[in-house]
Design a protein around this nucleic acid. Structure first.
Lengths: 203, 203
DNA sequence: CTAGTTTCATAGCGATCGCTATATAATGGT
DNA sequence: ACCATTATATAGCGATCGCTATGAAACTAG
């Protein structure tokens, strides 16, 4: 469900600002304050553009947020690659959890995870965008569950493994760590929580 | 940090509405939509009162939210009691997690946990109330950690136990389950995640 | 009763919300 | 050069935000 890259325009006045830099500034604001609590006025100020430029480049506030989420997902290693490139489902889970712990506690980024914190709840006016984010979260969980089921099928995990609960537990810890990070937990603590969470996996 | 019960007023026109019923309606709105996304207009409509009545009875929107959180914490068994009355730290954690899973998936209440979802992030204008909720979350974690350390001291848990990570993992799962519930996970799934999360505990 | 106190509903405050109408500036196509 | 197209800045739209001034209504104390 990725939008095609906009084809280079052939005519008209060119953008007077760096789209990527502006999007990065917007992403950080959404990351820190969430979707609804970040106002267009704050966004335009941080992006150093005027409202009409924002609406020309990104459609509306929701479109800018979607673009920011896309950018967030492309920072670091992509989640599907983390899951599918690991030698085992257990490694996939451990790598996902560690990447989340590191991402939640970056030195020059807001605490927590944009996916996990910026739009968990919303007013009815933003229900559709909230649901898009929920779908991304559910898709990650589903992909991890499939990876686990694959290991169960090959015998790398016991036949009685509850793949749904195992994947759900990983996602719960990922999203919970985001809140802990927002509340002040540091990188070392989150990494120890990751080790603890992985201890529930079958040998 | 509990406010004393307001002493019965001796004079003046009495309240024309049921304070508890109105507070319950407000709590459910905050629970579903979060603190900032719930407007005073929506609150007064659901509480069936006018704005001046709300401000007379609860001070301001923040005061109403604090009162709603107090009411939420007193619904069901109190968290400190769950932790301190359990025979072991492990039982305390399991009871906490199960209570959270059940509370997140009530039939006639919004999905998720008011503590975990309604105010994880906020605009700077609501930073102080956000921090109050973060303190409640940290206090719960600290109390569980103390309970774990107590079991380590008596030998009920191994001396090498990382009490901080063990408690942090429980809180992460609690807060993560709230997001899963908001995203549609049902009671059965959350309870299986609880079992999975408890599997990481030392024998 | 009157006086004092508190809550009530109506109405609307100033501020901010997401967004845009308008006119001008800067580009490519011909 | 001239037009079509797109982006720009200024200014401000209608709606909603949290909250409150006002004066009438409903109670207790005396």
């Amino acid at each position: 469900m990725k939008l095609a890259e906009a084809p280079a325009r052939r005519t008209g006045r060119p953008l007077s600002f760096d789209r990527d830099a502006a999007l990065d500034a917007a992403m950080r604001l959404f990351w820190q304050y969430g979707y609804e609590a970040t106002s267009v006025a704050e966004l335009t100020q941080a992006m150093r553009i005027t409202p009409p430029s924002l609406y020309t480049a990104f459609g509306d506030k929701g479109g800018l947020f979607r673009a920011a989420v896309d950018r967030y997902l492309q920072g670091g290693k992509a989640v599907p690659e983390i899951i599918d490139s690991a030698p085992t489902a257990r490694d996939a889970a451990a790598n996902l959890l560690r990447a989340a712990a590191l991402g939640d506690t970056g030195d020059d980024t807001p605490a927590g995870c944009l996916l996990a914190s910026s739009l968990v709840i919303a007013s009815p006016a933003a229900a559709d965008i909230r649901e898009e984010l929920a779908t991304i979260r559910r898709d990650i969980e589903a992909r991890l569950r499939l990876r686990i089921e694959s290991d169960v099928a090959t015998g790398a995990l016991p036949p009685a493994t509850d793949a749904d609960a195992l994947a759900g537990h990983v996602l719960a810890v990922i999203q919970g760590m985001s809140t802990l990070a927002k509340d002040g937990a540091g990188r070392d603590k989150l990494l120890r929580i990751v080790d603890m969470a992985m201890a529930c996996w079958p040998a």
